[in-house]
Design a binder for these strands. Structure first.
Lengths: 347, 347
DNA sequence: TGTTAGCACTCACCCATAAAGAGTGCTAAC
DNA sequence: GTTAGCACTCTTTATGGGTGAGTGCTAACA
């Protein structure tokens, strides 16, 4: 059954009203607030139809209607008006995001903070997965008699390091030789690729001269490489959710906090999520514990390739229009900032 | 006025009971539960005295007594029994903390997680402030035509790095020269010390040959040094607080989450806090927003010098005995792990 | 003089009941 | 097809009584 123009209009009004008020919307309120030339009774009939079609639901007999996930989906896809971010706000975002572009991690973390401040929701960001990044250098540096620092630098400038405590003394020559051999052997290979190799075996073959030393370094080398792939999760504005009526119930609030505090689980959800501006509403989320939430994510790119994500999480009733605009603007800004790399420094 | 033996006994019973039940303790309950050979009426008289002395308070006329901060202080100082950590738990802690000792950050973060699991409270840990750490190397490595990686290694193996985007091309010779000059000039100086110097000026004087290049690197050098001093804060078990009756009130929970989410503020409190096993109870906390909380912290040491902290935060009603024991055991474990450095690797 | 029993009193909490208010669903009339 | 009217439902808020745990005071007791 197709939705009539009037049904759409009513549904739009209900969703829009509910997003702001968080109160079930009644027919009387609707006809009073939005002058659409029909009586409450007519609206009631239409509402009843919309309920049958799965767009609305009833908390109880004598309450107004609230939109279902399906209604939000329709709203997001077809009815939502484009939100124009005020120029002043745009300027602030752009300035704050570009004034300190040295470190991707810091910029992204800061973006998450900014996002939570603007949207008054809990926000998050993850750094890109660098599996396709290639190795540029390996360095072993002496620290004290029994300690060395292992340092791996990627093609994109990402650095991963580890302290290694050795059982026996080493010589500076050994370190230098190792650094050179390792760099020579793995330079240009992707991190992911190197991780699939049998490093311990390779170390034995390539460096028989410093055999037992190499063997001792091997696990740390793998560990350090693996940590180059670590996706960092930044979570901000957690306490914002307490201002949201949906979380006035202590149990709901608890569930929410527990959900987002399981960082590993949450990171995985984000990593596996499609790229682009993605909105998942309530039951559209595959994860059972997110059935009451909506998640909006956008991606940002570095040099047009490596992809990280930034987004917000909150109740299904959220200001989809405003949030998507802000999110898109911010992610574009980050991408632009990190695309200029090597071409122009500032301005 | 001195507290009689009997008063102490009664106070102890009230505090111990309240810590477990979270319910105001009445005279009748007390005389029934703890057989101390006196009638409820007598207990009432004593309680009344204790209230006058500031050890107890009354939520309302017809409720039992609850301990004041002063009572908790007395309890912690004089009455609390030593809690014996079960051997099984000790083993678990020791094993889990020592099985992956490569990275201080990771060990400390993991310790915080473990602590929150054991105590069922919110826990935290900060890494040491490395102001007294000395510089060991500076390295500038080429990444692409206009990007270099600046890397600073400290005496303790801590690494701090930054991506630097240059406006003009550079030569590998320039990078190597700069690395050597910088290392030569600052090696052995404390990070704190270097930060007080006028680096831009020094760069101009020492490296007139590569003057404008040096000038461009200077701010990044300072920034990277500064980040060597960053104290990381790890916060775990946040959602545990929802199981605590004190935070059943949504506003209380909100305040708590807001408090600990202000990471910078919270880190500062921890950094400025005295070393050792420190317990601050409610109003003993200098910060107004912590007046309803107790904070227990212990420090851990690296190589006997650099000091980080680990601890828990929760309502004033907490199991001081158990928690201090566990906390002490864990912090000692971390210190030991990082003291063996250079002497023994495993075992 | 310290201890105890007794008793009136105070609250918080629970429960039932009542009234108000918002909103629905249905019916009949326009 | 639209609307007015009305009975009905259900939440919310207020009210009041009953119960139980606990106090504070007084008077009697050892």
């Amino acid at each position: 059954m197709e939705l009539s123009e009037r049904k759409l209009q009513i549904l739009h009004a209900i969703v829009a009203d509910f997003i702001y008020s968080a109160e079930p919307v009644g027919s009387r309120t609707l006809s009073r607030k939005y002058d659409m030339g029909i009586s409450p009774a007519t609206i009631r009939n239409e509402m009843s139809d919309l309920e049958d079609m799965g767009y609305l639901s009833h908390p109880h007999t004598s309450a107004g209607r609230i939109p279902s996930d399906k209604a939000y989906r329709l709203y997001v896809d077809q009815m939502m008006k484009d939100y124009q971010i005020p120029e002043a706000e745009k300027t602030i975002i752009a300035e704050k995001l570009t004034q300190n572009v040295r470190e991707l991690e810091r910029t992204v973390h800061y973006a998450a903070t900014l996002l939570s401040e603007i949207t008054n929701l809990a926000s998050f960001a993850i750094t890109p997965n660098r599996t396709e990044n290639t190795l540029k250098y390996v360095n072993l540096l002496p620290v004290d008699e029994r300690t060395v620092v292992l340092m791996i630098v990627g093609q994109d400038g990402k650095v991963s390091s580890a302290n290694i405590r050795l059982e026996h003394d080493y010589t500076t020559e050994n370190l230098e030789l190792m650094s050179r051999v390792l760099t020579h052997n793995y330079k240009g290979k992707t991190i992911n690729n190197i991780l699939t190799l049998d490093i311990v075996k390779a170390f034995e073959n390539d460096m028989y001269a410093i055999h037992d030393f190499a063997q001792r370094i091997a696990p740390d080398f793998l560990d350090t490489l693996e940590r180059m792939l670590t996706v960092d999760l930044y979570m901000e504005g957690l306490s914002n959710i307490f201002s949201i009526p949906e979380y006035n119930d202590i149990d709901k609030a608890r569930c929410f906090i527990e959900m987002v505090q399981k960082k590993q689980q949450f990171t995985e959800v984000l990593v596996n999520r499609e790229n682009g501006l993605i909105i998942t509403i309530g039951s559209e989320n595959a994860e059972a514990y997110m059935k009451d939430c909506s998640l909006i994510t956008a991606d940002y790119r570095i040099d047009g390739r490596l992809v990280g994500k930034i987004g917000v999480i909150g109740p299904t009733r959220m200001k989809y229009g405003e949030i998507t605009s802000v999110l898109k603007y911010m992610s574009d800004n980050i991408s632009q900032t990190f695309q200029l790399k090597g071409e122009k420094k500032d301005e």
